[in-house]
Design a protein around this nucleic acid. Sequence first.
DNA 1: ATCCCGCCTTGATCGAAATCAAGCATTACC
DNA 2: GGTAATGCTTGATTTCGATCAAGGCGGGAT
Lengths: 249, 249
Amino acid sequence: MLEQRDRAHRSPINLSEAIIPGLCAGCGARHIGLCDALADEDLHFLASVARQTTVARGHSFAIEGDSARYFFNINAGTARLHKDLPDGRRQITGFVGPGDFVGLAADDRYTFSAEAIEDVRLCRFDRTELRGVFSRFPALERRLLDVASHELIVAQEQMLLLGRKSAIERLASFIDGWSRRAILCGGGTDSLRLPMTRTDLADYLGLTIETVSRALSALRKQGVIEVTPDHNISVVRPHALHDIARAGA
Amino acid sequence: MLEQRDRAHRSPINLSEAIIPGLCAGCGARHIGLCDALADEDLHFLASVARQTTVARGHSFAIEGDSARYFFNINAGTARLHKDLPDGRRQITGFVGPGDFVGLAADDRYTFSAEAIEDVRLCRFDRTELRGVFSRFPALERRLLDVASHELIVAQEQMLLLGRKSAIERLASFIDGWSRRAILCGGGTDSLRLPMTRTDLADYLGLTIETVSRALSALRKQGVIEVTPDHNISVVRPHALHDIARAGA
DNA sequence: ATCCCGCCTTGATCGAAATCAAGCATTACC
DNA sequence: GGTAATGCTTGATTTCGATCAAGGCGGGAT
């Protein structure tokens, strides 16, 4: 592993970070994990199809309808994926962070837009050349199938949320899920950093900012969460939160 | 192709139908398409991990929470995939027909239930043994990744529908999509068979049966569709329907 | 410091869809 | 044939979340 990291540093991009994101060791499904020994020629090959870039907060690195040339792996920061209706209505389909992939759900053209909500560092792959990567690293394709399957599970859970849950249940579900993700990624269990605005939350949960605000207040008044002055959240009663999220399971 | 079909008939299951569903030749993404020549030993191997079954209307062949032993390929009939909340609220995440796969979005346990809404014929694979199938037929894994990607696109489109569209836009979107699917599958463009009930439609679109009924009436009054006496639909003005679905794009 | 602007919260009112309710059509079953 | 069950439609009323509106807070620019 360390030997591999050394080798990676010799290549133009930091492959150990790009291909084997080390930040979230506990996240399981969110990593490629090309952990086998890599020959130098393999590294050069990977470096030839990948490229590390930085995207500043507020900027998009994929736009719905554009030709889908690239596939991305997030190394640092948070981005939102969204779809828009012509009249401005917006649905955020997910937030992605370190270790996550962007571009799996793409045809010829992107069917979503991706925008950095914090400064984002990412690794960019040419999608055509990625095919070649697959034949050289079959484990990668296997891994991507697992990732895609997992994303399908998450997407279906979100359909249940959007189709059938009340406003307060949606907020509880989101905070519950987000805090589990934070815990898995090694974050402390006390304060939960929310990099997205209330508008983002509303567009993710199919609500308006006012309803999001009211639902958060309701959860606060019930003593389930606390809202910090900087608009972050701390979960006071995780079990109660989970019960609300699952509609009293 | 014909030679392959002949060979398939020698095996215990009808592989040409099960693995290469022939019913919907125009559907593209929905087929595995193991179109390369198959050796006899390959056929025997496939037959050893697959099994053809019939599921009667109203019966489930996968239940949320159960150990996810099997992966399915639908050969005939229609099924609904759904998730339920403890208090009875239900979200249908999709309808599947000939050529579709069920069980991609599964972990250790099913995260959805699958129920036949017509008599269904399907081909059942043991998910553990499927891993072995992958190493023998790498093209299959590639194909499943494509299928999973396509399902992700559809799921995200459905999130936009559930999170941001009005009742009438949801109905228009559904009918538009369903009719395109029917046309691709070689169906006539005139009458559109809806194998699902209004309740299913409501649970798919995040509405109630009354609202579904009213939205259909509204579309009918606008001269966009006609509702046949047997509750099927015929699309009178496809372009207008599409415009409503895309919120006046 | 002061102003402005973006972001959030809370209150008042409105509206789209849910709920409640009634009735009709078709099919299933005795 | 009669009757119950199932599924669909339409009308009346209610409700939850959207919309409209006002005000607070904090950070950045001048």
